[in-house]
Amino acid sequence: MTVLAYTAAGRWGGRLTSRPLPLEDAGLTELSAEERAVLSRIWLHRAAMERRVADSFEVIRGALERRRAPDELVALAVRAVDDEHRHTELSRLVASRFAGRELPLPERLVLEVPKHASASPELRDSLFVVGQCVFNETTASAFLETCVGTARGALARAALRELLSDEIDHGRIGWAYLASLDAGTRAEVSRWLLPMAYLNLRLWKQESPADPAYREVYAEHGSPSQATIHEALVEALRALIVPGLRELGLRTRPIEAWLDAGAFTDRAPTEFA
């Protein structure tokens, strides 16, 4: 019933994961039916999100090809599309295990690509790669690392580790691409960093809203609390993204000033631009 969109050309030669998911997870039997239903919905929603990111990487592949990026980076982007299809199926499988029955793939989510309206077509391509890989995928890696850190369930830990190892590669595409750019292009990109950091953090926070019915046991199965996630999101900016951008000579002072002001996302931080 499930259409497997990943291929033998992918990372694991057509297999879903580097190693099989554990067949047993004693922690699942200790969950109530309600808790299993909540965790199932969370993982099934993640399946839909992963499917949409496969579409994102199709856009990134096109951007890299138009900019004549090194072949190695284009190849990584091609593989990332396959990775995200595997992540879709992996997340659906985990959701099904929590549900105790086979679940169908959720409805496909719409991809809205950033417009970067006032950028040239050439710069827009570079901003695509920076936005998706440097900001989004690096943040995703920090998010997953946090999830792994709190997860105790065998199934969730195994799935999260598989996801994390791939997301790291996806983030590397952005950092490698930035490192391959000339100083002039990097200076152009610098102007957009604060808006992209703000929009990326705002969306990640929106995707992890407060849940009054949250239970700590969810963290043991891959779903940390809102407070834990939000702390990790800001830490990703402080400890990963800003130092990397600074290393590459991009202007990070506006982002740092916004971070020092609390990294608010209830309004645009235009005063730091």
Partner: peptide, 12 residues
């Protein structure tokens, strides 16, 4: 730039 879309998250 502050009113643009952001790349959809992969997790959450």
């Amino acid at each position: 730039a502050f009113c643009d879309a952001s790349w959809p998250t992969t997790k959450g």
